[in-house]
């Protein structure tokens, strides 16, 4: 490791555990069964722990774009959330320079509010000042393209199609500059036209950001944007290195 390189994110044997409530099966979901559990002192089956990330270690450096790959449920999104500090680490530690921002398409907004008010709310939640929000609102709505077919920005978000609301969410999240940018499947949203626009925006953000993490199932977008790749499988790292090498192993694994 060259000393001249500046690390921006370091994961040191990080474990992330989710607690899920209300996952009982119907057989154990009777008052009698619950009572028995309390008497016998067994852990209630209603609370289940999901060990999503099991001891991940890596160091990311300034100027790198890192792709995270792995099959569904391998812990990619969870790892991103832990890097962003949104999920606590159970064991080990994750260190970061500044505040990493997660750019996800599942940022929960309020469905009963108009698109425009959601833009304001989302920007304020990202820590923008009211003046910045006022200056950016129109650009964000224009970028999202929700007004392409009539004035949708003043309608409640529950009236939007899923593609439209995903586009609006992405546009809100991409409106801010970030030191460390974590992108979760964002490029997969919207139609081809919006995808081109959002890929350009991600490249711009990457130029400004120190480090970019990208979670995607599209090998093409990983190849286009990332030179390094981390392959996660069931919460552990199976490969970490130049994109081409890791993708080759990954493809071989997936074909089995």
């Amino acid at each position: 490791m060259a000393d001249s390189e500046v690390p921006t994110v370091i994961a040191d044997d990080a474990h992330v555990v989710y607690r899920v409530y209300g996952s009982n099966t119907s057989a154990s979901n009777t008052p009698l069964a619950s009572f028995k559990r309390i008497i016998t002192g067994k852990r209630p089956s209603a609370v289940r722990e999901v060990h999503a990330v099991k001891g991940v270690s890596f160091a990311a450096y300034r100027g790198e774009a890192i792709g995270l790959i792995g099959s569904n449920g391998s812990g990619k999104s969870t790892l991103l959330r832990a890097i962003a500090g949104l999920l606590p680490v159970e064991r080990g530690a994750i260190y970061a320079a500044g505040q990493p921002s997660l750019l996800g398409v599942n940022a929960a907004l309020m469905n009963d509010l108009s698109g425009e008010r959601n833009v304001v709310l989302g920007c304020l939640a990202m820590g923008m000042s009211p003046a910045e929000v006022r200056a950016q609102t129109d650009d964000i709505i224009k970028f999202s393209g929700i007004n392409d077919r009539g004035d949708f920005s003043s309608l409640p978000m529950r009236t939007y199609s899923s593609g439209m609301s995903a586009r609006l969410r992405f546009s809100i999240a991409a409106a801010k500059k970030h030191d460390v940018l974590l992108i979760d499947e964002a490029l997969a949203t919207g139609d081809a036209k919006f995808r081109r626009r959002s890929e350009q925006r991600v490249r711009d953000l990457r130029a400004e950001a120190g480090t970019v993490f990208l979670v995607s199932h599209s090998e093409q977008s990983i190849r286009d944007t990332c030179e390094r790749c981390i392959w996660l499988e069931s919460g552990t790292i199976r490969g970490d290195g130049p994109t081409e090498e890791v993708l080759k192993e990954y493809e071989a694994f997936m074909r089995k």
Partner: peptide, 22 residues
């Protein structure tokens, strides 16, 4: 993830002034 890199990672984070996310 092996025990050899463990200490150096923490050391690296400390040297560059990275803060723990938690």
């Amino acid at each position: 993830a092996d025990t050899g890199t463990k200490k150096s990672l923490r050391e690296l984070a400390r040297r560059h002034g990275l803060s723990s996310a938690g």
